[in-house]
């Protein structure tokens, strides 16, 4: 089956619908009309640019270009994790912990998937590596950001309890243990829910895309299962690493709770 080409004027029709929505929301004073249009414009510009970058990358297909692209994606994801936290660790730790845990989990799982499971030749073939890594990073980013935000926010709220537990002689990881588990759970639950609902409530985007592009559904399903598993594993380990490192950083070498290492709440 041939993929039907989409012309720009056809996309323009869809854009008109977005503008219509913006007009309606402006009339009903929802206050989102402006940000809706800005976001839509960003989508067009960002995706067009990434399309150009991917076309260039696919023609070159050198390991160091793929690596550079991956690094850029990682740094953007790291910045995003930091921006999504209300109370964040000062001195670059919020960025560092988020980025490092995403790097460790997403990159390991992606490389493992490419070399051991999918096995394109060479293993870093950008047509496989970049989309796979992109999906991994996108989901791991959400998990890590959610869990770190949950951790720092709950520690901030429950500092009296944590300190009282420290006063009774508990180790730092005992004193913060409940909150740490809660934070890890909150980072992992979205992907677990996504797996549980896959195919019943929602048709996953990647699978839909593959089917639209002409793949037989049975193959698309296999890829989707693989991607869901790797996303879950990447998000799970990334979340656990980030919360473990983040909670350690909230205590010093004397096992004191150091809320002065968190920045104040953004207004």
């Amino acid at each position: 089956m041939e993929v039907i080409d989409l012309a720009w004027w056809q996309l323009g029709l869809a854009a008109l619908l977005v503008i219509a929505l913006a007009g309606c929301s402006a009339m009903s004073q929802l206050g989102v009309g402006r940000s809706l249009l800005i976001a839509a414009t960003r989508t067009v510009i960002q995706l067009t640019l990434i399309g150009l970058v991917l076309e260039a990358l696919f023609t070159v297909a050198h390991l160091h270009w793929v690596a550079l692209m991956s690094l850029a994606m990682l740094l953007v994801a790291g910045r995003e994790v930091m921006a999504r936290q209300k109370h964040r660790l000062k001195g670059g730790w919020a960025f560092g912990i988020g980025t490092l845990s995403m790097f460790v989990s997403s990159f390991t799982v992606t490389v493992l998937t490419l070399t051991v499971i999918v096995g394109p030749e060479p293993w870093y073939t950008p047509q496989y590596a970049i989309p796979l890594l992109g999906m991994m990073l996108g989901n791991t980013m959400t998990g890590v950001a959610l869990s770190l935000d949950r951790l720092t926010d709950s520690v901030w709220r429950q500092r009296a309890v944590i300190e009282n537990r420290l006063m009774l002689g508990q180790r730092w990881h005992e004193a913060v243990g409940d909150l740490r588990r809660e934070a890890m759970r909150s980072g992992m639950i979205p992907t677990i829910n996504a797996m549980a609902a896959a195919g019943v409530v929602s048709l996953p985007g990647m699978m839909t895309g593959q089917i639209l592009a002409g793949s037989p559904p049975s193959l698309a399903v296999k890829y989707q299962i693989l991607v869901m598993f790797t996303i879950t594993v990447g998000t799970g380990f990334g979340t656990m690493a980030a919360v473990a490192a983040g909670s350690r950083r909230l205590f010093d070498e004397r096992e004191r709770l150091r809320l002065d290492r968190l920045s104040r709440q953004r207004q």
Binding site: E163, N164, M167, R171, W172
Partner: peptide
């Protein structure tokens, strides 16, 4: 001492105790 071991021996009891 480790911080926790010290606090286990030298114990601060705050005016409003917390229960978790």
């Amino acid at each position: 001492w480790r911080g926790s071991d010290w606090r286990h021996r030298v114990m601060l009891i705050p005016a409003d105790s917390q229960w978790w």
